[in-house]
Nucleic acid binder design. Structure first.
Lengths: 100, 100
DNA sequence: TAAAAGCACTTTGGAATTCAAAGTTAATTA
DNA sequence: TAATTAACTTTGAATTCCAAAGTGCTTTTA
């Protein structure tokens, strides 16, 4: 096995972004405020992490008005799902390596 | 299950330090230069990561002269092993959560 | 014995990352 | 039209990270 540490994804090494992707991969979609509450970060901070993930094309954004309020929904893209899975696989390999 | 993301260890979120601990937990001891080669970092960079781990009391250091050259050996402390294991457990929980 | 070399740092300076807080914009409600 | 709310963007500061240069100690070489 190649060195699994080399397969870690830089964008997903940060705890907050890992958690965001974790939520978006298991949920069809998730909105800004729910994500903010779940993760416990400020709105500005969340927005900037979302921007980083968007830049990587790991997520897509849909803006609308729901209940007459602005509502932003995020989804994981296929690319995002693949990268997330690979990152988890690298983590799994690290775990396996440890148990030997 | 509590939120596994809260159980991640700040000191072990960095790729290099995670790899260092991974090596030290599976090997009785490891010296500076072997670690440096294995991980592929500069000596100064490695030294500063080691210092961070030492500050957390995750590793212990033994200096000596071997083959008439200075030789620094690192070991994982019990505290380091425990923290490392807990970090991996948190990662495992995250992985499990994903597979549900 | 003086100079050179090697190891393991420490220091320095700069770049990148992260964060909270404040400011901004667009749409809606009063 | 003023106030409110969501979802940002900007700002400024703190922290982290890194390579490169410099240092101290010991051994080797000349």
């Amino acid at each position: 096995m190649k060195n699994p540490f080399d397969n870690l994804d830089k964008s997903l090494e940060h705890r907050v972004r890992l958690q965001i992707m974790s939520v978006l991969v298991t949920n069809e979609a998730y909105d800004f405020n729910s994500l903010k509450e779940l993760i416990g970060v400020t709105d500005g901070n969340l927005a900037s992490h979302m921007k980083a993930l968007e830049k990587e094309k790991y997520i897509s954004i849909t803006k609308s008005f729901a209940d007459r309020k602005p509502n932003t929904k995020y989804k994981a893209t296929e690319r995002g799902r693949t990268s997330f899975r690979k990152h988890l696989e690298a983590l799994e390999d690290i775990l396996k390596q440890q148990k030997k």
